[in-house]
Design a protein around this nucleic acid. Structure first.
Lengths: 150, 150
DNA sequence: GGTTAATAGTTGATTTTGTAACTAACAAGC
DNA sequence: GCTTGTTAGTTACAAAATCAACTATTAACC
């Protein structure tokens, strides 16, 4: 486990260090897609994620989005404000618990969601094209395990 | 490829969308280790990476680090400044090309590197403990392919 | 029912990142 | 050797993320 000091130019460890590898892959994999929602709608990743969740799951509270996406509530709060400002979503106070509010996409927001969903799906397919069906399934399973979802 | 609109509460796609999964896994996988270099030495990820590269490869220029780690030069510039301020590295002008400078760890920097290398190695081993040898090898290979290294 | 604690979400201050412009040094072409 | 272009690294400014403190509301407990 100790590093051999007499030997330099050893990139064995670096090439295999999982947090580094994961980060490189994640960064690269989100780069191209980021260019789409940024370029096409001027959105940040946080905003895209919130929109995405609302598109997939329908009505949600900010808290629920935060739990699912593992995003901090301040990020969500600001993303929601931005999406509302652009008329992509609307808020409705929960009358039973007036602290919470239900978020839903407007028709305009749904249109954006559908557009980006399509782009995301084909981008995903392209990434998965690097692997066989079996490999892809295993990869996703392993990533889920690392993420602590399973 | 079109999203089925009549059906809500569909988290199938989300659970499988590779950029999302990769990001979740990467974030989770770096979290605990980040706590170590941050808590123990008050370092940021950029600083840890620069230190790590210098520890692994010995003397390097900022440019080389940037290429290997795929970090932008401003990040590196600031990380180097911070590490120098803490006396973890020293700079030497390249006399043949006076624009470039060679960076090396000081003994203090090397001590930090050795400490963190040990932590990183055992942390990595723990992560890999989630998988079999075969799976782990495949995972790394797939991540490298996604990162565009291979 | 009044006090205390917890929760949903927002805001402000600080830190970190990203982008563009910059300096200093080298290289190429003429 | 002088212009033009390129490169290594820094700096300034804008954008974004983080952290702590805040408001408003609900829940818990005595």
């Amino acid at each position: 486990m100790t590093h051999d000091e007499s030997e330099k130019n050893d990139d064995f460890f670096l090439q295999n260090f999982l947090p580094f590898l994961l980060n490189q892959a994640a960064e690269r994999a989100s780069l191209e897609f980021q260019a789409v929602y940024k370029g096409r709608y001027g959105m940040l990743r946080t905003e895209w994620r919130v929109l995405f969740h609302l598109g997939l799951f329908g009505e949600m509270t900010a808290k629920e989005i935060g739990e699912r996406a593992r995003m901090h509530k301040t990020k969500i709060s600001r993303a929601v404000a931005k999406l509302e400002e652009r008329r992509y979503l609307k808020r409705t106070r929960d009358e039973a618990d007036r602290r919470a509010e239900w978020l839903t996409l407007t028709p305009a927001g749904q249109a954006v969601y559908r557009d980006l969903y399509g782009v995301a799906a084909s981008y995903d397919a392209r990434l998965l094209g690097l692997f066989s069906e079996k490999e892809a399934a295993l990869l996703r399973q392993m990533l889920r395990r690392l993420a602590g979802v399973d």
